[in-house]
Computed example of a mutant assay.
Amino acid sequence: MTSLPDLSTARFLPETVHKRDAFSETVSGRLNGVADFPVVLRKLDGVPLWARPAAWWLARKEVRALRAVAGIEGCPLLIRADRTGLLRSWTQGTPLHLARPADAAWYRDARRLLREMRRRGVTHNDIAKPQNWLMTPEGRAAVIDFQLASLHPRRGPLFRLMAREDLRHLLKQKRAYAPGLLTPSEHRMLARKAWPARLWMATGKRAYNFVTRRLMHWSDGEGTEDRVDRDGPGLRAALMADANVREVALCTYALPAHGVGLYVFVETGLDAAALRRLAPEPPPELIQPVAALPRHADGTPRLDALSLIATNRLDELTEMMAREPDLAEVLRPIIAGRLNLTDRVLKR
């Protein structure tokens, strides 16, 4: 592996934007002249003025935590932090909600990872999200996204409570994906939330939901209102009436705290502004012109793939493209131009 001093001065070459919110933009890529070492940048130089204090407060927390866990297998490597943002190694692996590990070995390794972090005085504080746990290609456990992590040099009562909550959240993942592996003591631990967790659920979570869903535009589901049935027929007819439009595909995506948005993919040579002029009221929230839509053998659009793009589920798209290389060629330009870059928080 290239030494850290070389990595710290290498130029970052961006490739894929994964998500964007008020406090950062997450971009994966590589380092110029460094082979086989994918990286990810939490980009902060484009953050709006009102969000910068909070964005850099979170960034400083992440920097401290990543420096503390350096060298622990399964934790990202911090490469540098500067005015642009935080650059760290990209962890290869499958998110837990896709990997769904049923082998006791993965959970043993995950406990090992939490134990080593605890020895460094670090609690993660955000591993209730299955997206923050990974199964590596070797079947090992890894954890990412240390934005909410905290460092406890004195390892006092608060540290012990937060470390316990990290473990309890790991056990919640085990209950979701391998319930038969839970031991009696683990069942008892799951049944007893620590008092900060109970207090959080009763008070702080409401404020957290307001900030993450209304300000940061994270979401926890696709909603229930069927916008496709209600607005789709008129919208499709209006767009297809133009000779430059070859096909239209409609999908939905979550509008945090505001229900469901309509995401329209249009196979056309027209630009988005022209398509918006064609669209009737109420207009769709997002409309993306594409050169070619992915299609089934019978010629109908691949709504399974387009729905993943509309909801910004890059993990599942990566797996789909690995299984279907021919489909990948059509999807890549659509993914690169996608219009929804919000984080997707899964609901159990």
Rank of each mutant, 00 (worst) to 15 (best):
C251K: 06
D298H: 04
N244Q: 15
L327R: 14
E319M: 12
P301L: 09
G269S: 00
P233K: 08
A279H: 04
E285S: 03
S307Y: 07
G259K: 07
D298Y: 05
P301W: 08
R313Y: 07
D326P: 06
A243R: 13
E316V: 06
V228H: 06
P325S: 08
Y263E: 08
T318Q: 15
D298R: 05
L262R: 13
G261S: 04
E319A: 14
V330D: 11
P256R: 10
V248G: 00
P294Q: 09
G234Y: 04
L331I: 02
E324W: 06
T300P: 03
L308V: 04
R313N: 07
F265A: 13
A274V: 13
G232D: 05
I309S: 10
L270R: 14
A305D: 10
P333A: 00
R277T: 03
P325I: 09
A257I: 12
R227V: 03
P294L: 07
G234E: 08
A274I: 12
L303C: 07
A292W: 00
V260F: 04
P280R: 05
E319R: 14
A249V: 02
R313T: 03
G269A: 01
A328C: 11
A257S: 15
L239Q: 00
R236W: 05
T268P: 01
V248K: 01
H258E: 15
P325D: 10
A273F: 02
T318W: 14
L327T: 09
G261A: 07
V330K: 11
R276A: 11
L275Y: 02
T268W: 04
P256A: 10
D326L: 12
R246W: 10
E319Q: 13
A292V: 04
